[in-house]
Design a binder for these strands. Sequence first.
RNA 1: GCCCCCGUAUCCCAACGGCAGAGGAAGCCGCCUUAAAAGCGGCACAGUGUGGGUUCGAGUCCCACCGGGGGCACCA
Length: 828
Amino acid sequence: MSEETNTYDVRAVEEKWLPVWDRIDPFRADDAAALAGKPTKYALTMFPYPSGDLHMGHAEVFALHDVISRYWRFRGFEVLNPMGWDSFGLPAENAAIRNDTHPATYTYGNIETQYSSMKRYGVSFDWSRRLHTSDPEYYRWTQWLFLLMHERGLAYRKKSPVNWCPQDQTVLANEQVLADGTCERCGAVVTKRELTQWYFKTTAYAQELYDCLDDLQDTWIGKVVNAQRNWIGRSEGAHVDFALNLADGSTKDVTVFTTRPDTLYGATFMVVAADAALAAEIVAPDKRADLDAYLDEVRKASDIDRLATDRPKTGVDLGITATNPVSGEQVPVWAADYVLADYGTGAIMAVPAHDQRDLDFATVMGLPVRMVVDVEGAEDPAVSSVATTGDGTYVSSGPLDGLTDKASAISQMISVLEERGTGTGTVNFRLRDWLLSRQRYWGAPIPIVHCDKDGEVAVPLDQLPVELPELTGSDLRPQGTSPLGGATEWVETTCPTCGGPARRDTDTMDTFVDSSWYFLRFVSPNLDSAPFDEALAQAWGPIDLYIGGDEHAVLHLLYSRFFTKVLRDAGLITWDEPFSAYLSQGKVINNGRKMSKSLGNGVNVAEQLEEFGVDAVRLTLVFASPPEDNIDWADVSPAGSQKFLQRAWRLSGDVTSAPGVDVSTGDVALRRLTHKTVAEAEQLVESYRFNVVVARTMELVNATRKAIDSGCGGADPAVREAVEAVAMLLSLVAPYTAEEMWERLGHEPCVAQATWPVVDPALLVEESVTAVVQVKGKVKGRLEVAPDISEADLEALALADPGVQRAIDGATVRKVIVRAPKLVNIVV
RNA sequence: GCCCCCGUAUCCCAACGGCAGAGGAAGCCGCCUUAAAAGCGGCACAGUGUGGGUUCGAGUCCCACCGGGGGCACCA
């Protein structure tokens, strides 16, 4: 074999095919076909933020995503596979301040860099649908959707303590504050500020967002469903009304939320959140100073302190009592910071015997502890200081006395409360409304005008987009208020209602708003009369498979689900969930560590592509592990991938039969393997086991090599059939190599438009199979039998086998399990 | 503390409840070569984290524990 035919030049092949693919444009999604009812698939991978060039994570997710997209096209679906950029956001703004430029400079420069990298990476995107969320043509519709939310009562302003990042000088959503109380973006310690901010009412859909997770259980990766469930945090319980006996002699009803209404007789005090308005309202006059002092103390505590779950309980007696609605008992009312103002009703009934937090508080404050559930084998919590939460016998609990089962005690107490009108069974959620306003420049302006006379007025739809004023460099420096406020000419406007002077809202939207609906814009990215074409959304959507990173397991997916439900209720789409299936890719790490600049262990994609070529890098990422597992770059071998690709490619030079040759006369053994491989690959791709698809392709390559060198030879039609199958399988992962093979096999470009092999079921049936004969579960013999052998025949053959007879050794055969044609197990 | 996922050879990973090994990496030995690389052929390496259970049969199903990863967390 000469040098020239032994390897191909990776670089030259990449240069060769890019313009050809541009000309053929095989991946353009045909709207007309979709509307005409051709079966469609919508494949989507999370669009990137344009920060510099692509990194390994992008390389991985695009490679995985392309397997399924290309496969669907092969299987005859009209595939929508679009790509764009999530191009609003802080890094561009910070770069603009640093370099005294406009954020657009950084943003669109990076987009062009990423675009050319993505083109070369060979992903089957339909580039005609490219979009950028920072284009006015796009954010016009983001604003339109904000106004839709506003009109439906789902966008509102309220003043409340919000997360404030002193570094980024902006508010953050709960979702953007990490568990350790730091900003997810810059790592600064987040503080609280009392501010008026815009919210989307995600809580209005809490129940449905939670319930629909059941439908996604089997098609979404489990950990993400779990994360969503935990985030929404549904808990069943009851609202119970306590009457407060205020210092001035009046009474006031206060509702508490509890998951344990069955322990109501054990409530020995009540606690309200110290920072809730209620505390200040109900405190007895002689205790007001105590409360104020306590509040000062609480506010001084940093979020990090607040988050420590094991710190000692603190609180203050409010000097009033509450009446237990079932026992009539008077219990003291306290204020404490272990009760949260924004969860439930901001007030609890404290049952120290059966809740550890309440018990800790009672111990510190010397409050009584009364056991009402006697758990067998457990000490009285009043003595042990360990609250019991399990099932037990109810005591001192009026109508519940003698019950032994928590579930029925709960439902019985709820019935009692509902009969008396002092409580009701209810469900509470951890999910809060979505704080969406940001005091930053590079985002979609909130399309609201504030008028002294008319208040909050929506910008009329025909005046959208509210375009960003041109601000650059130091204009964008964070000052705690939105940079837009400095654009006086832009801010000063007229009220759409009365025509009088008014001011534009100067906040911009969280960039998660932009990405909550981009998948809909892709169905009609250039439409200028609506955010998206409803008929096309119906034809293409919902997304058949969405692939992305775990970092968006809660936020982006939840927000997109929320938008989908709102748009459905507004009648714009018909489906309930945006992503029918979701797969998250693992991380690419290096040497057991996350890649990072500070560790100096980053792997540069461009360098890897330079050294090994696009196909080898893609193959490495797909083959390394199941999609959701992490890939340690130190454990994998792009050089090995490159060798395999050359090996596969070499096959195409050894095929000497002509294209279109009748394969039916070809070598049966090789044909069997080809058809079996294709059949298995179909199953494997459809279940996202892409790494195994590659392994199966490797087997077919190995077998074909053997057939050429020491079997039927390169002229056998079966070899052509096998190599063509290899080219198509390989094109899912290594499009350049596959294209080159396809050409060498004598075909016109491109392989993406080739006809997927039709599996012949007759070739999947083996001529003979090896049946294993076990005696007491241990293998004692093997039989070559026909695949359609009857159970009786197989049993007879097995019992007649001399090796088996020896193993039975005259013992009585008690039972024979036959699984024709693979196995017989003889029990003696 | 509560909830999910995962533990198979030196490493990455396969294995409808039915012979633990498909594929790859690294290693070793040949062939080829003036030599090296590439290529071709071969060798070796685990009884599936631990302990129980179900079953004719368990890596696979159930229970407990250990280890790793992730989500939530003074959320009543």
